[in-house]
């Protein structure tokens, strides 16, 4: 395989879920590409199509069947992993990937050693190889001391590390991690990040990571693609994405939507504020130096007799990048980036 072949190559991928009552287009012409040995972060709110993408790439779901008039054999776009088509060459793909879903990939009533060894053997490792590799990974993830305990006795952080270890047993060419740290406490998350980033650097494998935490992608990903409504909205390195947004995001909560609209007219005259939008009773704006503009803004709103319930300044977050690209906000549990200040 020439080195120019991308480890993940997705073009115009579509996936439609049909039930009796409604039709949902989960992927709507998605394009993605990850070079071998890199970490690609797939960011987006819940329902954006992240997991659907990973499920198709891991051969667990099929893209849409071909539309009328397509050339025979074409489906809703193409997806190749490690050089193989995920529909026509699924068996070859399965030998080369590791898949860690959002839900635990281990059996609760088996020990972690049993889970690891079984995963290794199913991928064709010999008995001894599987034993040795399991011991090695238990060591790397700091689980050696509890290797023979049932997984159901594990904490969330330990169980998640074990999931990642299971995905690594056969040293896959491409590893899929679907929201590896969702639901973990900050300490466990930081620990897993440290392990993932050293692994990704050392092994030369390609990693596709989905997340709705910008800081996670920031820490781990070489390239980030933001998707929404099943399409890539923007892509680049984490720094490029943040640089697209100049300065901090400001939010001011007012008593009502009318008050927010009135406040937006007043804020338009405040020097240093840009991209002023109203979202219900919340006013949003951007400013190069948020901390120095906010007292001015609060001052003029007070003078205009508009009571402020809360105000905040935040460093650019996924929410802001997302808002910038799509013009609407989403709630995906990434609010902790914003520091609310009581007014």
């Amino acid at each position: 395989m020439p080195t120019t072949t991308p480890a993940i190559d997705v073009a115009a991928l579509t996936k439609t879920y049909r039930s009796r009552h409604r039709t949902v287009r989960a992927l709507d012409g998605l394009d993605l590409r990850a070079d071998a040995g890199t970490v690609l972060g797939l960011l987006g709110p819940n329902g954006a199509g992240k997991s659907t993408t990973v499920r198709i790439l891991a051969t667990l779901a099929l893209p849409d069947p071909p539309a009328h008039g397509d050339r025979p054999g074409a489906r809703g776009g193409t997806a190749r992993v490690a050089g193989f088509d995920v529909v026509r060459e699924a068996a070859s793909v399965r030998r080369r990937i590791g898949y860690v879903s959002q839900r635990p990939v281990t059996r609760a009533m088996d020990t972690s050693r049993e889970n690891l060894e079984l995963a290794g053997r199913l991928h064709g490792l010999g008995h001894r190889e599987a034993r040795a590799r399991a011991a090695e990974l238990l060591d790397v993830f700091g689980l050696a001391g509890s290797a023979d305990r049932l997984v159901r006795t594990y904490s969330g952080g330990m169980a998640r590390k074990l999931d990642v270890a299971v995905g690594l047993m056969h040293s896959p060419a491409v590893l899929f991690l679907d929201e590896p740290t969702t639901g973990l406490d900050p300490e466990a998350r930081a620990e897993l990040w440290a392990e993932l980033s050293s692994l990704a650097q050392a092994s030369g494998m390609t990693v596709l990571l989905t997340t709705h935490y910008l800081d996670e992608a920031d820490r781990l990903a070489d390239q980030v693609v933001i998707i929404d409504h099943g399409r890539a909205v923007t892509s680049g390195t984490p720094d490029q994405l943040k640089d697209q947004l100049h300065g901090d995001g400001l939010t001011v909560d007012l008593a009502s939507a009318e008050a927010a609209t009135a406040a937006a007219r007043i804020a338009a005259d405040v020097a240093g504020l840009r991209e002023i939008t109203v979202d219900g009773s919340r006013l949003r704006a951007r400013a190069t130096a948020g901390a120095s503009v906010i007292p001015t803004l609060l001052g003029v709103l007070d003078a205009a007799g508009l009571p402020v319930l809360a105000a905040g300044i935040a460093r650019p977050s996924l929410d802001d990048v997302y808002l910038h690209h799509t013009g609407h906000a989403f709630d995906a549990g990434n609010g902790q980036a914003r520091q609310e200040v009581a007014a």
Binding site: R55, R94, V105, T106
Partner: peptide
């Protein structure tokens, strides 16, 4: 759990 998905992706 994700066990069946993991098996089917292997």
């Amino acid at each position: 759990r994700g066990v069946m998905d993991h098996l089917l992706a292997s």
